[in-house]
Design a protein around this nucleic acid. Structure first.
Lengths: 334, 334
DNA sequence: TTGAAAGCGTTACCAC
DNA sequence: GTGGTAACGCTTTCAA
């Protein structure tokens, strides 16, 4: 016979101490009301005495659920995913669920296996901004369900919570046009990125709505460094307003322009995207499109919770980013 | 008889398909070498055919381990803990361990219960910057072990990985003194915070080493807003150099000073602490003490891994923050 | 080398 | 109401 592996008291210990059967202890611990008050009392006393808490693993095995969900993010260092993860975690905690986290480090191959793995250990899965192509995702869905997506467009039949990047871009564009700008520059993100694609769609919508306006697109990037490096291209372009792919790029650009003696917003207006916490604190503070990622996370959890409860999740979420006007945009020069 | 709860193939299915016993399947799946090559072959084929993967829950129950550890952080929105969490997660993933995350939202009461809860579900626990007092922590240790602490001083007998905030403060002070500053101001963090206590110790060390230097202490805070609000106090103090509790406070101060037309570093030098990702991108860029939190996380994992393997963890980590000189500090005026 | 069977610690069905 | 006991899906001892 093997020695008892855990030093912790078990249900049989409590049962013996209370002079009842394990079944009764289980009933009491789970709040089953069909137990005589006297026994309930004795069981609680015995459990408290021994410091008994049921083994979650054993419960998971018999109940078929872990009360835990997994979240797979492409990059834990990215503020967007940090916020989303926070939203999910806090919402899940409210309903006594735990969150297992997996970071794919932007590796598409790893992402697939990580998702499978993570899902196996938990009851459900949130894929944040999955990088894998639609077909691959669609093929995975059955084995990953219950599944919710964030930062990715609906279309796979999976409940989704994301932001309307296209609309955000349009709104930023309109803001700049309203300030009199007629020559805009979009510093694009990675060509392969869905979110960049959506922003470009927004740019196209602006072009269509305002044929008199010129919108140039240049490759920018995703990071401070990329934005910093784009300063030269910005100055050459002759644009009076620059729309960066995200806040990081915008901040890098801001720094480079300042160093070059270019006044923002007097000479050039700059917009970001995302409204990361620091956007408010740059000099000048950054006009950007605020994406409510924490809320997005909470909404993703709500859909997952519905799925777990066997209910139909609410319809897909498409949060419209709010244009937050700060000091980095102003009237077009001259 | 209950219906089979999971739709997934089980070990008995594979055994049947391969014409062997479940025991043999288990042995093959776990790489036990005492199985005949022919059987190994057949089992692998059957498993692949059925898409069999052993249930982690069932394995956990019998093996007594989950291959999962918990990390409790006081605030997921805090860059320090995000970085530490990332360090832990990535290091753990390398050794095929998962991470369960819990956010106490700076609630000391919740922290204790959260830690207990999290630990029950996993093999071990990392407490990041636990806010609870020493005695309470010491009392909890037995029930939480294996346990590792980050961002907290050793002393409880628990393996610890933290940064030497005192030394960082001293080094920042010396940097400023080297620039000719003779009147410094420290914008203190929360009085209850251990990390503020350590920084104050550093301030005291500077005072002792340089009796001719005046170091004023004012309550600052922890956030951008706090730093922004401290600008007036800074100007009144007459200090030529300000040491902020952290980068966030320093950035808020930078913004307020800029708005007030105070030149940094020409009129006032400013230092932060932590070197969060954006410190490099403020204008002017921020001189600060860099704490290698990702590395700290990895080191915490290493200690936890040792504990899990039944080995003695390496000695406690006390990383010295590196003074990173950027543009927010310069020679004292006049 | 292989298989039977006894756990791992619960829950829930079925009797009483 | 309460207690036996068969699952839950796996690993590992023990025998053959």
């Amino acid at each position: 016979m093997r020695p008892r592996t855990s030093g912790r008291p078990q249900i049989t210990d409590v049962a013996a101490a209370a002079g009842v059967s394990p079944a009764t202890v289980s009933r009491v611990m789970n709040g089953n009301t069909t137990v005589a008050a006297a026994l309930v009392e004795r069981v609680h006393a015995a459990a408290a005495e021994l410091g008994y808490v049921a083994s979650p693993i054993a419960r998971s095995l018999v109940l078929g659920r872990t009360q835990t969900v997994s979240v797979v993010v492409p990059d834990m260092a990215n503020p967007t995913f940090q916020e989303t993860l926070r939203g999910i975690t806090r919402a899940a905690a409210q309903q006594r669920h735990r969150v297992l986290i997996a970071d794919s480090a932007e590796d598409v191959t790893a992402e697939v296996e990580l998702a499978r793995e993570a899902r196996r250990h938990t009851d459900a899965l949130v894929l944040c901004a999955p990088r894998m192509p639609d077909e691959q995702l669609a093929a995975l869905v059955p084995s990953l369900a219950p599944l919710v997506l964030t930062h990715r467009r609906p279309g796979t039949g999976v409940p989704t919570a994301t932001a309307d990047y296209r609309a955000g871009m349009v709104d930023l564009g309109e803001h700049l046009l309203g300030l009199g700008h007629r020559r805009l520059l979009y510093l694009a993100g990675p060509a392969s990125s869905t979110n960049n694609r959506l922003r470009l769609d927004g740019i196209d919508a602006v072009r269509t709505a305002h044929p008199e306006v010129e919108v140039v697109v240049r490759t920018g990037g995703v990071s401070f460094e990329d934005g910093y490096a784009a300063a030269a291209a910005v100055r050459e372009s002759g644009a009076t307003a620059v729309m960066a792919f995200n806040d990081l790029v915008a901040m890098g650009l801001l720094g480079a322009l300042q160093e070059a003696g270019v006044d923002v917003p007097e000479q050039v207006s700059v917009t970001g995207f995302d409204d990361i916490p620091l956007a408010r604190w740059t000099t000048p503070s950054l006009t950007t499109a605020s994406v409510a990622n924490v809320e997005l996370g909470a909404l993703a959890w709500a859909r997952l919770a519905a799925l777990l409860a066997g209910q139909d999740p609410d319809e897909d979420v498409l949060l419209t980013p709010a244009v937050t006007v700060r000091s980095s945009t102003g009237p077009a020069p001259r």
